[in-house]
Design a protein around this nucleic acid. Structure first.
Lengths: 231, 231
DNA sequence: ATCTTAATTTCGGCA
DNA sequence: TGCCGAAGTTAAGAT
């Protein structure tokens, strides 16, 4: 990885065109050739960037560029798409280079997959008397997050979201419509479970006879943690 | 802005929990206190980060940490949410600091502007036998996106939107009313062009005798690229 | 201020 | 490899 602190202006042409006026910025060039241009504010998104795989070639500046004070023009080109990023270098204040090696990578915990795992193991949070049929129950229009049977011989389709929104209700509605055509499963009712359910989604769901359940992640994980302490 | 090349491990707790094993990485600390941790691969998204506003405080390592070789623990905390990022520092290989000042910011050629440019150059996508009169044809109530003449001596006003909605049709209707009062231009008919036209807008437009055209951005751009190769 | 929707989305999964 | 959906989505525009 190479890091440059430099005065530069930038031109990008690809899916859109964009321009960065001259300013002092950080330019990061990763081992795969990708380039990130950061300012001293904003979030983690760079002002400009080029995704790998890409190559950087240094070109001599045109007369026009020289007149403006540009010493080098870096052409960053994507191999697949025709995206091109031109970095017009005015002055390089500092440059460093380090070999970071391959990163072991991020270990995540607490995403929807984890919620699903926790809920499937503790179905009473989604309703009483439920027995798991299976997770990721596959249908022609996509997988149902959790399918369970209730004590009355009916089936329950559970749609799980971190944040419950209208589109999640729509999704569950489509599943229910399909599943209810299956005589082996029908009647199938729906449960919309999320850590947070938006009022509109709740209204729509209940209007369609879909039960809403708000999940407490800490509570779900509570048993998980208690188990963890045994080790 | 401060840049560190360091051996570190990272723990994040917030909307989810995440952990980064020990490795050599780049840590960027911006002026607003925000922190980005990058490896030498992946795209512009950092492995871990903390959004502004946030504060960084250095804590002495616990006994447990010392035993592992941690020399410092950086606590990066969000002011608003309760997100916390712990950076366990093993060794700092290099650190630099630069004042970048305020960035003038990115100038984008919006998609709509680009669409207009592409369509004006390839008017056959908006209808047969059209000849460009001009883009941004100015009237008393605002600029018409594209004005063209057809083979029958009539004029065509094209209103361009990324997504075609009712208000776009209303806008075009007002232009048409005005333009048709000009004997040099009349008769003027309207074309409503967008990448996606909502059913309501389509109904309203056709009810008023306005033609609807759905644009394929890739198709428009495809020819653009082919032309580009000529240079 | 809140909500809706696009993004040079990125990223991961699975068919 | 391509499609589909989630993301600590983020970010910009509209209501």
């Amino acid at each position: 990885m190479r890091i440059f602190i430099m005065d530069c202006s930038v031109d990008y042409t690809g899916r859109l065109s964009a321009h960065l006026p001259r300013a002092k910025r950080l330019l990061m060039q990763k081992n795969d050739g990708s380039v990130l241009i950061h300012s001293d504010s904003g979030s983690f998104k760079p002002l400009n960037w080029m995704n790998p795989p890409c190559t950087v070639t240094v070109e001599p500046p045109s007369e026009f560029h020289v007149a403006l004070g540009v010493t080098e023009v870096w052409r960053v080109a994507q191999s697949k798409t025709s995206d091109i990023l031109f970095v017009n270098v005015f002055e390089i204040h500092e440059s460093i280079e380090h070999d970071l090696g391959v990163d072991p990578g991020l270990i995540k915990d607490g995403v929807e997959a984890h919620l699903q795992e926790l809920l499937a193991a503790q179905l009473h949070f989604a309703g009483e008397g439920l027995t798991l049929i299976r997770r990721e129950y596959f249908t022609a229009i996509g997988p149902v997050d959790i399918l369970a049977s209730d004590v009355r011989g009916g089936t329950v389709a559970i749609e799980l979201k971190r944040r419950g929104d209208i589109d999640g209700v729509e999704q569950l509605t489509r599943y229910l419509e399909l599943l209810n055509r299956d005589p082996l499963l029908a009647p199938v009712r729906g449960v919309f479970a999320a850590q947070e359910i938006k009022p509109q989604a709740k209204t729509l769901a209940e209007d369609r006879g879909i039960e809403c359940v708000t999940l407490d992640y800490d509570e779900l994980r509570g048993l998980d943690l208690a188990e963890g302490r045994l080790f």
